[in-house]
Design a protein around this nucleic acid. Structure first.
Lengths: 183, 183, 183, 183
DNA sequence: TATGAATGAGGATTCATTCAT
DNA sequence: TATGAATGAATCCTCATTCAT
């Protein structure tokens, strides 16, 4: 029974990620249908729709944090930083959810868990940033808040404007030029 | 009655700008209440909610275009470009509506009028960009699409993250560093 | 001024006849538009929508009465009776309003005027019937109520079923066969 | 819950039959109230108001067809035909819905199911007619379309004029005289 | 425990009718 | 007087959430 329940919970979260990622106004019923469970099952696992949304958000943020932590072990901190930045923005362009996750991560709202996940993700990104600065790949006078704002902005911009890959890359080239240390 | 009606229409649009600017999911009734009119009056002026949203959007875009055109006459094209960019981002931070307007302006959706207004606004911004490039204030190899994407991204980022003024300015400083011609 | 008002009143009634004849659920505004007047003008002439509907109904009934009275002077009472019957049914097939008018004419509802008009119309039809019976063209044991019911039924049936002309005529042939005196 | 749901569905249809039978313009809420369920329950069972109306219509038509089929087995085809005709008209006089069902059965509109039900009902009635003609109880030169038109008309007439039983019967006597074979 | 059913509050939209010019 | 604007009540329909099986 435990196994079944855990399975269902996972299926629901996957479905929610998919559904809300495409249209944030989707109904809980859509999630249930995609997950192949009854709607009551969704509400058994997540007491309110908000709770479900937060769970999805938390998952997203944890994945981003994990990726950042992975890259933190890289031999080339500069490359690691820019690769993470690029990956996040690229995926956001097709996955609305990521851009929204980034946004929510810093905002007061969100439940306890999501806030913690956001904190963890930002810390991991901060780690990438600091290492890149130490390695001379990012200007040392850039502070975390504005760099994180730039990450959010680039993601949201790419998402909102449905940029094609080329334009997105050229936009990022401009951003990176602003981030690199002056010669 | 013409006068009254025009008055009401203006009041409704102001209210809609305010209401939808804060929460795009707001109800038409909220708009009516803030405007101090009955809900049917809103629907008399705007046949559907979509039409109302488009009208607000159009107004926003036209205002931005006008500001861009004003600045286009400036003696210092570089200053004009950056001032416009800064103003847009600054206002977006407090007015969700502007960021969304910018987004929609480039997206296929939106009605005829809104699309036209978006086109006009982008053209005016393109004018500022070209002039600034000619004046040597913006690197010549930056094309309009990515610069516009940067404008949208910065706006959305500032809005979404609810940046304080200082952080926002530092973020813009990074962006502008990326835009300036290499020495 | 009187002339203008009378003119408007006539235009409104014509429009209402047309509009409600095609779709009884039509709005007062549709009537105003077709009449080429403002909606307030409609309500100045007819205090409520019901009043307007009754006026249209009354007009219809008066016209039918007039036609019956005209035919009453005919040299061949049998032909007169059947011609009237046929005309009413034929027109009903294309003018929903006539069938409804006939219905309402016998029903308790309707205002004073409409009731009076209905009474007048039924009397005129009764006159045609009696004369036709005296002339031996309609069986003498048929009383007015059932014959009138047959008129209403034929009209409504033709209207409701959107009968083509041929079927309608064959249906009427059956009805007339039932009405004719047994040989 | 299946049992409960089926129960509710039945209650809703009964209520709808009653409510719409008395006033086709009634609101869905009226149906819900009479059925003793919330309005959302009505919409759970019937996605749109139109669907509900069609379901009621279909039920009516199926009942009429069943009655016709029952009578088709009768030993006296003539009596069967006239009994069916009389029953339909009699009930229509008090149940608006039946007359409307008959009407709609032949009209292009209506959904798939209702159309099928209408077809079945007309076929069953056609069977009664043919048998009665073979038995010499109905004139052989009367075709189905006009006889069906007569059925509709008689029903609608009886309904619309709210005929008392006696007048209705005398009206039917006239109709039947037209239908009987000439001696 | 999982399910599908039930529910009421809320949202967009229409319409008869009343006001202000 | 004729007009177009304003209005709130009513209507259809959706959705998050709760119940009963």
């Amino acid at each position: 029974m435990r196994a079944d329940a855990r399975d269902n919970r996972a299926r629901i979260m996957t479905a929610a990620d998919e559904v809300f990622g495409q249209s944030p106004a989707a109904s809980t019923d859509d999630v249930a249908k995609l997950a192949g469970v009854g709607i009551a099952t969704v509400f058994r696992h997540f007491a309110t729709k908000t709770e479900l949304l937060e769970a999805v958000l938390t998952l997203r943020l944890e994945r981003l944090r994990d990726r950042a932590l992975q890259l933190a072990g890289s031999a080339d901190p500069g490359a690691a930083f820019y690769e993470f930045f690029t990956q996040v923005v690229s995926e956001s362009a097709s996955k609305l959810a990521i851009a929204e996750a980034l946004t929510a991560s810093g905002v007061a709202a969100a439940g306890e868990e999501a806030r913690a996940a956001g904190h963890g993700m930002r810390e991991a990104f901060d780690g990438l940033l600091t290492a890149a600065q130490k390695a001379g790949a990012v200007r040392p006078d850039a502070h975390f808040p504005e760099v994180y704002a730039l990450l959010i902005g680039s993601s949201r911009g790419a998402t909102a404007a449905r940029l094609d890959a080329e334009t997105r890359d050229r936009m990022l080239a401009l951003v990176y030029d602003g981030l690199k240390p002056p010669t």
